[in-house]
């Protein structure tokens, strides 16, 4: 009961602090960190869930529409998968992915908070390297991106936000494994937003 009261009080406080300033917001910058939950089973087997960092610019367009664009980076490590329990060697592998997304979103204001839902495109470049063996693969691709974010104003220019992003793209058909891998999946994270104008 005590925890519920505390949460309720915090919500009221955020709403009061938030006011309606976000409605006039023209441009903001966000920094987020997100847990990455890959769609492909092999990706999950080798790398598990990952952590991505992102920086975006949110630009107000006409009415409730806006545009978000930015850059994100995923860095992850894992171990190459083997087919047999008898194979007990460990080959560490590293995966890096850079993404440049452009998303058109629709904003719904809720007092000191707002919800944003959008869709767009993301261009990805990636590299997978084995740490102890000279095996390396670089690739790139693009695919649709879907976004759902909730933002709550903390102070005059500072807000916190939570977001869910879904990327869908496959790449690597020309790799030595000769099979494209679904590199997309969900990213669930949160961060801070700074209103510039």
């Amino acid at each position: 009961m005590r925890a519920r009261r505390a949460a309720g009080a915090a919500a009221v406080l955020l709403a009061v602090l938030g006011g309606t300033a976000s409605a006039q917001e023209k441009l903001s910058v966000t920094l987020t960190a997100a847990g990455v939950f890959p769609r492909d089973g092999l990706v999950r087997r080798i790398y598990g869930t990952g952590l991505a960092a992102a920086a975006d610019v949110w630009l107000k367009l006409k009415g409730p529409l806006g545009l978000a664009a930015g850059f994100s980076r995923l860095a992850d490590t894992g171990a190459a998968a083997s087919f047999s329990a008898a194979d007990d060697e460990v080959f560490p592998v590293r995966f890096r992915r850079q993404t440049v997304p452009v998303v058109l979103f629709y904003r719904i204001g809720l007092g000191g908070a707002d919800l944003r839902a959008g869709a767009g495109l993301a261009v990805h470049g990636f590299r997978e390297a084995w740490q102890t063996v000279d095996l390396d693969y670089k690739g790139h691709g693009w695919g649709p991106r879907f976004l759902l974010a909730a933002r709550v104003r903390l102070f005059d220019r500072l807000s916190c936000l939570a977001s869910v992003v879904y990327d869908s793209f496959r790449a690597g058909a020309d790799s030595p494994n000769a099979g494209a891998v679904a590199l997309g999946g969900f990213q669930v994270g949160g961060g801070l937003s700074w209103r510039v104008y």
Binding site: L42, V43, I46, G78, A80, A81, S82, F83, S84, A86, D87, E89, F91, V93, F95, E128, W130, V133, L135, D136, Y137, G139, G172, S175, P176, N177, V181, L183
Partner: peptide, 13 residues
């Protein structure tokens, strides 16, 4: 003989 195959997303050993 036994074959050991280790695979990452885009390479295999």
């Amino acid at each position: 003989s036994r074959l050991a195959v280790y695979t990452s997303l885009f390479n295999r050993l």
